[in-house]
């Protein structure tokens, strides 16, 4: 049993499809409660990377460790938020929030406490008994995010959850996800194409390269919160990451 200080360890993750090298020797560690953003050019094997983390298929070499053991969806608490909301249409908002916890067979009292906490943090009181189809896409996505955080996961993986939403909405949602993160102390891996979003949210930014994909840089973002997107320091960091990628 490893006594590693890291919650999540990625060791030499490599994936080949036949002769095509997609991911090449990716290694990084994440501490408990850290918020890490991953940015990279399109076609950098991000989808493959995600599929390996969600165990859709297995790596060619290397592995993903949680608390020192190989990540196992049955044993570990892994939560995912994808680009499209995946609320269960036959359950109300409250039932959706409870869903993940009920699957893990937690005691009812505990579930009540956690779900109430999330509803309060996100201001979802008025939607408690609504069904997903009655809500806007962005609200539905917030439910999914709330559900993920409610599970107090070992690792919370978010893949461009705010996709094509407009800037105003994005800022609001980004502040909300930071609130949830601080409150629950979850370990978060947040994948995005939006560099401003990455610099706004992250304590660390991992910059991926083109295929065969490696980690180009592991950048620490030490700016105080709440961050000001118009401040020169913020702009400098943002420009730096953009230059590193230069994908278009």
């Amino acid at each position: 049993m490893s006594d590693s200080e890291y919650k999540v360890e990625v060791h030499h993750l490599t994936k080949n499809f036949g002769e095509l090298k997609v991911l090449n020797d990716i290694s990084f560690n994440v501490k408990k409660g850290e918020f890490v953003c991953i940015v990279g050019p399109t076609g950098c094997g991000k989808t493959t990377f995600l599929n390996l983390l969600t165990r859709i298929y297995m790596p060619t070499k290397g592995d993903l460790l949680i608390d020192g053991e190989s990540a196992d969806p049955k044993k570990h608490n892994l939560a995912f938020v994808f680009q499209e909301p995946s609320a269960l249409p036959w359950k109300t908002v409250e039932q959706n929030l409870r869903f993940g916890l009920e699957l893990k067979k937690l005691p009812k009292a505990e579930i009540d406490v956690r779900v109430e906490n999330i509803i309060k943090l996100m201001g979802l009181e008025e939607f408690r008994n609504s069904y997903p189809h009655q809500l806007s896409v962005s609200t539905e996505q917030r439910i999914i995010i709330g559900r993920a955080f409610a599970m107090n996961p070992d690792l919370l993986l978010m893949d461009e959850p705010y996709g094509q939403m407009d800037i105003k909405l994005r800022f609001y949602l980004e502040d909300e996800v930071l609130r949830l993160w601080k409150n629950t102390g979850a370990t978060v891996l947040f994948i995005t194409h939006n560099i401003e979003e990455a610099v706004y949210l992250a304590e660390r930014v991992l910059i991926l390269s083109n295929k065969p994909t490696t980690i180009k840089e592991d950048l620490r973002i030490d700016l105080p919160r709440p961050r000001d997107v118009t401040s020169p320091e913020f702009i400098e960091k943002r420009q730096y990451v953009t230059d590193q990628i230069k994908w278009w």
């Binding site: 080949n16 036949g18 002769e19 298929y57 297995m58 790596p59 060619t60 070499k61």
Partner: peptide, 15 residues
């Protein structure tokens, strides 16, 4: 030159 294919144990099972 054809590079030697390396497959993990998992991938062998898949194949």
């Amino acid at each position: 030159k054809k590079e030697k294919l390396f497959l993990s144990e998992y991938e062998h099972k898949e194949l």
